[in-house]
Amino acid sequence: MIEFILARYNYWIVIALMMTGLYIVFSRGNLVKTLIGLNLFQTSVFIFYITMGKVFGGTAPILLGGHAEEGHGEEHGGDHAESTHGTAYGEHEDSYASDPLHEGGAVNTIEETHAELSPGESLHTAPEGAVNELARAETPAGDVAKAALDHGTEILYSNPLPHVLILTAIVVGVATTAVGLSLAVRIREAYGTVEEDRLEAIDNQDDRAEVLV
């Protein structure tokens, strides 16, 4: 039971945040506040997405050290562009490793991932570039291990896909806010108010006036 709660309390708090935003949208009459509520609602959904991409013991999905080179040294050994890459992100490794938030998180070793495989599972190496082949592989857990083996990686990364989706969603969110605010500004100029109740009253007046004409 405690485990059940501990594995989910994160989601519950995020749900509460989402609902706070949604409540502001529906309950407040001020158009600007409605937009801020909408923003809150969306930001909370972003948190929800990022929460589900977190992997315990994982680190930010930026390949650390020269692993890419280790794995593919034979392919393009001595390539100049590549070696500059190596140094460039080598620096980053340091900055991330010293980040207190990541301390202790970043060391899930390959043996451990190994241990989680079922005994009969073979760790064959997938052919280069066979995306579909790999994608349809039987055990997802095997993929991680395989990937780790293929590239000599010792680090477990958090899931990059939710991050990408949310980057897109953040942009969509700010675009919506901008359009909504420009509408609110125009409404204020046309009606003299941005309160829903008053707007409705004015619109009703307009309607009645039109019927009389």
């Binding site: 594995a7 994160n10 997802p140 993929d143 991680v144 990937a147 293929d150």
Partner: peptide, 19 residues
């Protein structure tokens, strides 16, 4: 569960990208 590396969300396409 939160943070589970075996969860489908983290083990399938996401892991594929990393690999």
């Amino acid at each position: 569960a939160f943070g589970d590396p075996q969860a489908p969300a983290n083990a399938y396409v996401g892991a594929e990208y990393i690999a």
